[in-house]
Nucleic acid binder design. Structure first.
Lengths: 383, 383
DNA sequence: TTCGTTTTCGGAAACGTTTTCGGTAGTTAT
DNA sequence: ATAACTACCGAAAACGTTTCCGAAAACGAA
């Protein structure tokens, strides 16, 4: 009835338990176990992509020759190559990038970790990264940390698991420990920091003129006659916040204006907190006559609030902000800002990373500071 | 001097040309060609990642067992599994996603094609996509078409080459032929359209209330007393532009207001062109007293220009726009808009795609329309 | 004992590509 | 004729994982 798959014997077959739900049989003659394989009805799988083996078969040659032809290697007859390319084009062959990456040990993909894609600054940086990366033949994989350290760590792990060739990162506001970066750096992963960098590790970095920008903005307020300048600073932990605050302090020092703690407020990217700061300042016995917001969005919020309170800008209080977006020029009064190009920053960072990836051994990590520009508008211009 | 690698003979060796720069030798005794392999000095390669084979070796078991243990298969002794997991954790094993994907035929990655990441609408959608995708265990790969059809096609090809499990797409303004989509759909790739959809193919779609929104906005203008309503429409080819224009027309028809061709202007996402439209309208013998911009950014531009020209909003000309951003509420006068949540849209689209991927066979493509909301602000409110 | 059963594991193939290295044939110089 | 050479190609291993299927061992029941 049932014949042994090996010797064909029929009478020596005995049952031998079940395996994976199927009856298992044993042939006493040749001492072999086996199960009966049903003809396996054709599965309606999605159309398979053409592989290099398909091309090789259709031409009666070996896969290695096809690979050589398609990769422009030299060990091949030009005529054969032509023919292979013709057939490959005809069959619409697309190399399987997964197989390629697995074999070559590189994915031609770079990973990007940013706090939040919805912030126009980061969106601009991303656009710049994409442009340069694409031109250099790299794909881009983007992750958002949402300003959370743990998410950032997970992001990095996920990107490494995807075997990205390099990493572009701007840290979350929470990030004060950089073990996740150090680990990957030690493993040899090229990493480039931008904007929110980290000084503990030796990576290439692209930064804005944080100190200089704040300095220039503050100095501008002073030159416009402001005597009591408040600052809406960023999170205490963030390096760029510190630099910007230092720029502010340096400008005050230059003009011998005393630093007053009550005029410094640290925000934390929380909705509405700049208004808390403002409220505090307005209740002081001596109100400030100028405000520096190290993030332009805070300045915008405060302009709206000041207008509600009928406080005149810039005559009673002058405002300046760090960073530029369309809204800064459209709001009334328009906002004086220190302007940087996020797009350009992204491009530079991506270029650095690609260099780092390509010249892994000789690459020298450098710090590049983007040049910014003071754009004077209505919010600070006292005639 | 030089011994044959096979027979060890020394005297039968003759030179036999060069191969890949190295001297080739021939042993006449055993008729074998060979080259001399230098001891291959240790290359200082970057630290290798731990593999399943490393774990297997360190435990003296086979890789398949390790794989089964780590993947939670049943064919394994609980004690062995525990031990394997312990060692894997200890060695900080991370599965190579490339190898996994190659083997399983799925990457757990979804591709997204959008016109431009810098547009707040799309940035919001992306954030929504990322959230849902990440929660479902999918990575996201983003491409920008920059409103170019050819780039969009290249994007799709690149994503397919990366073997994404599914595609989320919002077409460029140029895209009128959908062969690139049809091709991939035929190959079985799950695709979901959002916002700028395409009716030629049977995919799941998430759209805004384009018709309804325009209708409501236009009706609102009419109810505020506008008699001559101009429309700053989008690109002619874009489906959503057509729908929005139709909503406008339907509202006019409802109130028996004649449609005037001279009051319709098609923009093309080019800087400053809405001002051209405005200029044209203002030079008409009968100026419009209301304007609908199917893209809020055009409305913003026009508000700025109208203010320059000292034309009163909304008393002389009332304005409304489609789509909402912070700036719409901050500009003066603030802009009446039809509001949708991009974040939510992204989430819904991503969820649909994941459903489509997981239930490839049974998935029914549906069209989901997001609910929008009229937000009345100063730009149209005539007391 | 002897057969049927279950549990646990390993070998090997598979995914699609690249790369290494030798085989073969043909060519040139001696 | 033969040593030295070049040009072209294929077999096989490698990348790291999963999965198929049988082997081995241990156990239970008749």
């Amino acid at each position: 009835m049932i014949a042994c798959t090996k010797c064909g014997s029929v009478e020596n077959i005995v049952k031998s338990g079940f395996i994976r739900g199927k009856q298992r049989l044993f042939c006493k003659a040749c001492e072999v176990h086996f199960t009966i394989h049903l003809p396996q009805k054709e599965i309606n799988k999605t159309v398979r992509q053409i592989t290099i083996v398909d091309i090789a078969k259709s031409l009666g040659i070996s896969p290695s020759t096809v690979s050589r032809a398609l990769n422009g290697r030299s060990d091949i007859n030009p005529a054969t190559r032509q023919e292979i390319i013709r057939v490959a084009t005809e069959m619409d062959y697309r190399p399987n990038l997964l197989a390629q990456s697995l074999n070559r040990g590189e994915t031609h993909t770079i990973g990007v970790v940013i706090p939040n894609i919805e912030r126009p600054f980061f969106a601009g940086v991303l656009a710049g990264i994409q442009k340069v990366a694409t031109e250099a033949g790299y794909r881009v994989m983007i992750c958002q940390s949402n300003e959370s350290h743990s998410t950032e760590t997970l992001n990095v792990q996920a990107l490494v698991a995807s075997r990205v060739d390099g990493l572009l990162i701007s840290h979350s506001k929470e990030t004060t420990s950089f073990d996740h970066i150090k680990l990957q750096l030690k493993r040899g992963l090229p990493i480039v920091h931008f904007d929110r960098v980290c000084n503990e590790v030796e990576t290439a970095k692209v930064v804005q003129e944080d100190f200089e920008g704040s300095f220039v903005l503050t100095e501008h307020l002073i030159l416009q006659g402001c005597k009591r300048i408040a600052v809406c600073a960023g999170p205490r932990e963030l390096l760029i916040s510190v630099s910007r605050l230092n720029g502010y302090k340096a400008a005050l020092a230059k003009y011998d204006i005393p630093l007053r703690e009550e005029l410094i407020y640290h925000t934390n990217f929380i909705q509405g907190e700049s208004l808390l700061a403002l409220d505090g300042w307005l209740n002081l016995p001596q109100k400030p006559d100028g405000i520096l917001a190290v993030h332009y969005a805070n300045a915008i919020d405060m302009i709206v609030e000041l207008k509600k309170r009928k406080i005149k800008i810039p005559s009673e209080i002058a405002l300046v902000g760090f960073g530029d977006e369309l809204i800064a020029s459209l709001i009334e009064p328009s906002l004086t800002v220190f302007h940087h190009s996020p797009f350009q920053m992204g491009g530079i960072a991506a270029k650095m990373l690609v260099d780092n990836i390509i010249h892994k051994d000789t690459f020298q990590p450098i710090l590049q500071k983007m040049h910014g520009e003071l754009i004077i508008r209505q919010s600070s211009l006292r005639k």
